[in-house]
Write a protein that binds this DNA or RNA. Structure first.
Length: 534
RNA sequence: GGGCCUGUAGCUCAGUCAGGUAGAGCGUCGGACUUUUAAUCCGAUGGUCGCGGGUUCGAACCCCGUCAGGCCCGCCA
């Protein structure tokens, strides 16, 4: 059974109505690591729906969290905003400094700035969660009841956090962080509490009162999370392994939520995604790849497959080079399979059955539209990459595919894929291995090993290509003819041509590539090869 | 210090919860095809299941120990 179905099944034992939740702090550029958070939730929700459960899938935007520091991608002027809530400060402008004008005129916030592109990517990926803005929830009083209980039980909660996380909290710790005199959440001390007011003093010399029913502050993370579970009614949440460790926020959260009068959600801990060769993703180091950027390279269903095929506790290495080709080709292979009939075979071992079920489940989760069957395009990424490099016009790509019988007609799906492919080829991510290059200078080492037959073919070929009409068909017949004239196998002509023109033993279909090149420069190259073999 | 996760074929991983002959895909090699989509099709190759004990008729799986890598216990998915 697919991991999402396993999660759904265990949810079904607990009831029929469920809220699957996810949450991210919009503190900077979103990356594909965040995508795992949201897709893991989305897949559980989908599986639960498929299992006949009544599911609500929510995405909590943690806009009430403060700006921790002036990140590298921010301008110095953000110094004044540190400690203030992400949903209450301006978005960065082109220079990375706060755009106060847009903030005052349109209410365009830091949180929205980073969230917006992510939401756009999500809709392309087929994820449509109910959005909950955390800051807005505080301000409109959704947290009121639970914040009150938390403040009333301050001692019990403090004891719980200290015991479970084995970390000591300061003497004046209180389960409510009031906004200080500068509108920030730091450098403030709670001095008293009488519902709904929390009294405070801050290091700037200010004192004041924070009304916990009006969002004049927030619950600290370890209480904020369980409080959300409570008022939203969360029954299942997937979260990163940082929260999942012993003594981490899930460990304290599951106890605190019960102090607040609710049951803890079913957890699912997932591993990080790293970029191949670059280590863990980190916005500050800059080795991130955003969902938008990823979508320019691969179609959404393939991105979904990446998450769906790995169990959540497996670390994923996202490889934007050759790994992408393998992944995309795997998608095509899976799409071409008929899992239903494979499973109908009752001689299958349990192991084989599990494997087929998982593959089938992964494909069900990979579709951007729930219930839509993926169908193979019968054009591999590899093949498309070749065509895209040799043919400038999309129409020529389609013509070639139709002519070879690979496709009957062009579909929007294929057009979309070619579009992304061209993007990929132009990007830094495109692997050298896939890039095709006609040599500028002869590869002397390869030419040295030429036999006399091969040298003769080369001579013939040089003459023939000099005279031939410069189009794909003519070139295509020229090459094998160069060998036939000598009563040698046509195949040998290709070997010679690859060695001379590309410096490889084999390669993609030559004629269309050469047709795209300049006849003069090919002739020169071949002449240089000839000289080198004399 | 405490805890979590991972370790299975050259690579990526299933299989561990419910113990029953070690599985896929990729790669590699071979064959078919022969104006070749580095294509496609067919076949083969491939593992002391990190290591050592224990339980069992039987262990990749359960238990104990151990090694290695990653991570958490400071609100970075």
């Amino acid at each position: 059974m697919h991991w999402a179905d396993v999660a759904a099944q265990s949810l079904s034992h607990k009831g029929n109505k469920h809220v699957v939740s996810t949450g991210i702090t919009p503190s900077g550029e979103f990356h594909i690591g965040h995508l795992r958070e949201i897709l893991t939730g989305d897949m559980i929700a989908r599986a639960a729906k498929n299992a006949g459960l009544d599911v609500d899938f929510v995405f909590i935007i943690d806009s009430a969290d403060p700006l921790r520091k002036v990140y590298d991608f921010l301008g110095k002027e953000y110094e004044q905003c540190v400690g203030q809530q992400l949903g209450a400060i301006p978005a960065p402008d082109k220079n990375g400094n706060p755009d106060w004008e847009r903030f005052h005129e349109e209410g365009w916030t830091y949180a929205q700035h980073f969230l917006q592109p992510f939401l756009k990517a999500l809709s392309e990926i087929g994820v449509k969660p109910r959005l909950i803005d955390n800051l807005e929830s505080y301000r409109s009083g959704r947290f009121s009841d639970l914040a009150k209980i938390a403040c009333d039980k301050a001692d019990e909660i403090k004891e719980c956090i200290e015991r479970v996380s084995s970390r000591e909290l300061p003497e004046h710790w209180f389960p409510w962080s009031p906004l200080n005199s500068k509108g920030g959440l730091d450098k403030v001390k709670v001095t008293g509490y009488d519902f709904p007011n929390v009294h405070w003093t801050d290091e700037y010399g200010g004192t004041g009162v924070s009304d916990i029913t009006k969002g004049e502050g927030k619950l600290p993370w370890r209480i904020d999370w369980p409080a959300k579970w409570g008022w939203i009614g969360v029954t299942c949440e997937a979260f990163g392994k940082d929260h999942g460790a012993a003594g981490g926020s899930y460990a304290t959260g599951r106890e605190i939520v019960q102090l607040l009068g609710h049951e803890p959600p079913q957890p699912l801990v997932y591993e990080w995604i790293s970029l191949k060769g670059k280590g863990a993703m980190s916005s500050s180091v800059g080795n991130t790849i955003g969902p938008i950027e990823a979508l320019q390279l691969v179609p959404p269903e393939i991105l979904r497959l990446l998450i769906a095929k790995s169990k959540p506790n497996k670390a994923i290495e996202f490889d934007t080079g050759m790994g992408l080709v393998t992944l995309a080709d795997e998608y095509e292979r899976l799409a071409a399979r008929d899992f239903g009939s494979e499973l109908a075979d009752d001689t299958l071992s349990r192991r084989q059955r599990v494997q087929i079920e998982d593959a089938s489940g992964a494909m069900r989760m990979a579709s951007t539209v729930d219930g839509q069957q993926a169908h193979a395009t019968s054009v591999t990424f590899r093949h498309l990459a070749l065509l895209a490099q040799t043919k400038k016009d999309d129409s020529e790509v389609w013509a070639s595919l139709v002519a070879s019988g690979a496709i009957q007609s062009v579909t929007p799906q294929l057009q979309d894929r070619l579009h992304r492919m061209r993007h990929w080829i132009e990007s830094e991510h495109f692997p050298e291995e896939m890039r095709m290059n006609i040599l500028k200078k002869p590869n002397l080492e390869m030419l040295q090993h030429f036999t006399s037959d091969q040298k003769n073919i080369l001579r013939n070929l040089t003459v023939a290509l000099q005279a031939c009409t410069w189009d794909s068909a003519a070139i295509g017949s020229c090459i094998p003819q160069a060998a036939r004239d000598l009563e040698l196998p046509p195949r040998m002509a290709f070997t010679v041509a690859y060695a001379a023109l590309m410096g490889t033993e084999k390669g993609p279909r030559l004629a269309p590539i050469l047709a795209e090149m300049d006849q003069q420069s090919i002739r020169e190259l071949l002449n240089q090869c000839l000289v080198a073999t004399e």
